[in-house]
Design a protein around this nucleic acid. Structure first.
Lengths: 208, 208
DNA sequence: ATGGAATTGACCACTGTGGTCGATTTCTTG
DNA sequence: CAAGAAATCGACCACAGTGGTCAATTCCAT
């Protein structure tokens, strides 16, 4: 982001980012209130407009930030040497979880972003900014020979991905509602239940 | 809903409902604009406040309407004699699709509703308004003996449900973006791909 | 002590707010 | 057709909140 903005206290920076992400997630652009943003970020109106010259600019910088953050997180944290598909999916889920832990509205913001972007623009952005990363995530160096040969591989992969996404969403939902601390152990245990089942369903029987 | 409101031209009624659902889905209550609602519904300000005495009342009536609509749709359209789990899931998806076709923002509105409701309140509402319907949908008169006995039944059912939900969401998303007509045939064909795969994965082998 | 950067919040012209209400159109009934 | 009732309109209101500005203040390195 902006030079001025980049060099400030990271804690304050994240307060501003989170406040803005929340406001823009919950309301469409015109109705998102900069007053609200500064109030929740606990900074003055003047400061926000010192960092960003206008509401529009703030929004655009937020878009950039979001995309770059996700790309970086994936690129830096995925262990490309691991060849098991489920481990890859698990890693992506973990990364996602950590991002959301730091920026709770990052995901809502991104979904809103995608909704307001045309297919053509999306395709272009994905190529420009992340190269073939999107294609790579669930394919690069994966040992597909573990899958049963009598099933539709592409569809199976999709179901596995969807399962983890839904699992994440639902866990997040109930956690927020219950206002509980992350019980990491329990969460992983539950995830393991689905992994085990899906392996039984889609992988070849052990012992060949 | 209100007597005055119930007896009007259904086409106009749906215009108002859809406009309100959209506005409340896209913005939190305070920022949802009645001006916007009447503009999109193509009625006058006065008329809206003739039907509903306040913005608050409109919102609450909309909640009631949404819940009742979904309950009725399920109760009236599910064929409880069909014992195959996938057929049941398929039926629920179809019902959902038809509802969304008539009220495009019904689902977004409901999700927003659920997010803003406490667990306790949700449980209570579900019991009062729908009885044991929620429990019943995916269990009543289902032939579970078709499932492999070596898998976690509960988890398998969840995965199947999630797959259909995700499939629905993604289809909806791309359809809206592409501004295409519902190609019903193609959609069903693609769904069948997942059904086939999941049956292969979770059902007992045929001929036994 | 000083100068520049960071930060504040009162202030502004203006847009949009939920809701009202008398006027007008449309419908119903004799 | 008359006349009253019901439905519908939209100009109007007091006011809350808008994005953005800027002179004043605080902070901090030198």
């Amino acid at each position: 982001m902006d030079n001025v903005f980049k060099n400030i206290d990271p804690e304050k920076r994240d307060r501003i980012i989170n406040s803005a992400l929340e406001e823009f997630s919950k309301n469409q652009f015109e109705k998102a209130s900069t007053n609200n943003i500064v109030k929740n970020a606990k900074i003055s109106k003047g400061l926000l407009f010192h960092y960003f010259n206008s509401k529009k600019e703030l929004y655009e910088k937020l878009e950039e930030f979001t995309i770059q953050l996700i790309i970086d997180a994936i690129q830096e944290n995925i262990d490309w040497n691991i060849t098991d598909f489920f481990e890859r999916v698990k890693q992506v889920s973990m990364i996602k979880g950590e991002l959301i832990y730091q920026y709770p509205y990052l995901y809502d913001f991104m979904i809103m972003m995608i909704e307001n972007t045309s297919i053509e623009e999306l395709r272009q952005r994905s190529e420009e900014q992340s190269g073939d990363l999107v294609q790579k995530i669930y394919k690069y160096n994966i040992d597909f020979s573990k899958f049963r040969s009598d099933i539709n591989l592409e569809a199976a992969m999709t179901i596995i991905r969807w399962t983890f996404e839904k699992f994440g969403e639902e866990s997040m939902g109930t956690l927020i509602k219950a206002e509980k601390e992350f019980d990491f152990k329990q969460l992983e245990q539950e995830a393991e239940k689905y992994i085990e089942l899906l392996k039984k369903a889609f992988y070849k029987k052990e012992g060949k």
